[in-house]
Amino acid sequence: MTNVLVCVKRVPDFSGEVLLTADAQGVDARFVGFTVSAHESCAVELAVKIAAAGGGAATVLTLGPAEAVEQLRSALGVGCTGAVLVETDPVGFGPADVAREIAAVVAAHEAAGRTYDLILLGNDAADTGDFQVGIRLAYELGRPVVNGINTVEVTDGVATARGAGADGGVETYRVPLPAVATVLEGGVEPRYPTITGRMKAKKVAVEVVEPRREPVGSGRVRLTLPPAQPSLVEVLGEGTAAAPAVVDLLRSLGVLR
C-alpha cells in the first residue's frame, strides 16, 4: 500500500499581463481567477496514479485562505480521496514556514496512524518562483528528496524517479521510501474533473487546521518583472501583390509543396 501526500498552492490564473502588488511582494490577483500551477497539476496526476497502483490513498494539502478549498476540490475531483487546508493568509509565509507547516501536518497524521510513503510537490511556485519548499520539507522530515522529476513509480518500497538530463537524456533516481519529490510538468498529462468527479468532491470533508507557528517570512526584498519582449512583424505586402510572398511562406512552412 502506497499512500501519497501531494501539496499544491493557490496561484493567480494569468493569461495576459502579470501585475505586482504595490509593495512588489506578490502578484496582484484582484482581477483574475485562481488555479494551481502546471507543475502541481502533474504532481496531482502522479499522486493519484501511484496511490491507485499501490492500493493506497492520495491526499491533497494546501496552505492558504478559506477560498483555497476550490483548488482542493479540483484535486479531489480527479482522484484524491482526502484534503487538508492549513487556513491562513499565505502572504507572510516564506518557503521555510510552509515546509514547517506541511511537516507538522505529516507528524500529526502519523501520530494518528496515517502515514505517507511519498510526498509530491510542484517544482516551484507559479507566482513567487520559490524552489525551496520541497528541499526544506525533506530536511524537516529527515527524508531523501529528488527535485525536478517528470515521473515517479513505486515498487517494493523504492521510488524510481525520472527527469530530463542536462545532455538531453533521461536521469533516473532510486530512493527508499518514505521520500519527497518535486515535479516538473511534461511527464504526465493531467486529467480534468468530470461532472461525476466534481459531485463526489463536494461530499468529501476537508480537514481544516491552523498554522502551528507564527511565520518568519521569506526575507524577499521585492519581486521584479522581466522586461517586455519586443514583437517583430514582417509585412509580406498589400492586397493581391502579397500573394506570391504568402505562397513562398507556406511552402517554407511545409504547408504547400
Rank of each mutant, 00 (worst) to 15 (best):
94 G>K: 04
37 S>Q: 07
62 T>F: 07
9 K>C: 01
223 L>W: 03
56 G>A: 14
28 D>W: 03
223 L>I: 07
12 P>H: 12
69 V>F: 01
240 T>E: 04
105 V>D: 02
52 A>C: 06
181 A>L: 04
243 A>Q: 09
223 L>Y: 05
212 R>S: 10
141 L>R: 14
162 R>C: 09
27 V>L: 08
97 D>S: 00
146 V>D: 00
194 T>C: 12
17 E>L: 07
18 V>I: 15
208 V>D: 12
72 L>H: 12
124 D>R: 15
86 V>L: 11
33 G>C: 12
209 V>Y: 08
3 N>I: 02
47 A>D: 06
252 S>F: 10
174 R>W: 01
74 S>H: 04
121 L>V: 06
168 G>T: 04
2 T>D: 00
141 L>C: 10
63 L>F: 02
145 V>L: 03
183 V>F: 05
87 E>G: 08
113 G>S: 13
165 G>P: 02
193 P>R: 14
80 C>R: 02
86 V>E: 08
187 G>L: 12
121 L>Q: 01
192 Y>G: 04
157 G>Y: 02
252 S>L: 11
216 V>H: 01
166 A>D: 15
49 K>D: 15
44 V>C: 06
175 V>I: 12
65 P>V: 00
55 G>C: 06
233 V>I: 06
159 A>C: 08
251 R>Q: 14
149 I>R: 04
189 E>V: 14
36 V>N: 07
185 E>H: 02
75 A>N: 05
207 E>Q: 14
130 D>F: 15
154 V>C: 07
